[in-house]
Amino acid sequence: MSKKANSIITYIVLTVWSAIVLFPLWTLIINSFKPQKEIFKDPFGFPKNFTFDGYIEAWKNGRFDIYFINTLIVTTLSLILILWIGSMAAYALAKWKSPLSNFLYIFFIAGLMIPIRLGTIDLVRLIKALGLQDTIWSLIPIYVAMGMPIATFVLTAFIKELPEEMFEAARIDGASEWQIYSVVTVPLLRPALATVAIFNMIKIWNDFWFPLVFIRSEKARTVALGVSLLFGQYRTDWTRALAVLSLAAIPLLILYVLLSREFIKGLTAGAVKG
């Protein structure tokens, strides 16, 4: 086969798959602005009778405003804690040469292969005992724990590749480990911290399992839980159903368009180096 034929096949295959990817997302967004009748009559064209009804309904009566704020609080606080305590631990795991730190490193990264969901039965009892059930505070410690394996894995590897002379020089200058960590290391960690943040942000923002297990009342619902309840409610009203799905999808889609490289790097952080 000639080189030209090869590249034509490449374009055809990739274009067909791109259409298969984009078509559902396209119909999702355009149809959410159409009245029900128009969705059924003309599902693929631009909206002729443009409407915001689905969005207004989801936001006001569906209380998406609450779900958004809750998810934002949970995601932000969890991320801050993951980056903070994860980078401290990674610094020690990278710089402390001892059998104990080797053991702890393996203990942390073992969590990459064992999903925390399998411990849910016991977490239900723990969260109940702590009096956190049916609040957004039940989610944060679990997400922070869930973030530790990837944080220690990525950050420890990154710190180990920083030049050792730099740390030695700081030590000779009499800097304490705390100063070396906070003044020297953390600013250099920024790209690795971004990777860890994106990985966890997507997991936490989209998580449905733990809200489903722990949360009932409206004031504590997250976006994912809200979507599942509202979608059930609006099942026969496609304008509303599609508006709910769009509301959940659009924030991350916009971020992805702006930061696609970082997103791809972040989501595959556990498997691809660099």
Binding site: M88, W96, I116, P141
Partner: peptide, 24 residues
């Protein structure tokens, strides 16, 4: 100092992930 660096991560990881997995 090293223990102090590791402690917060280790506690959260133990209490909300490792122990629940084994206790389950």
């Amino acid at each position: 100092t090293w223990i102090f660096f590791l402690l917060p991560a280790l506690l959260v990881y133990l209490i909300f992930m490792a122990i629940p997995l084994f206790d389950s």
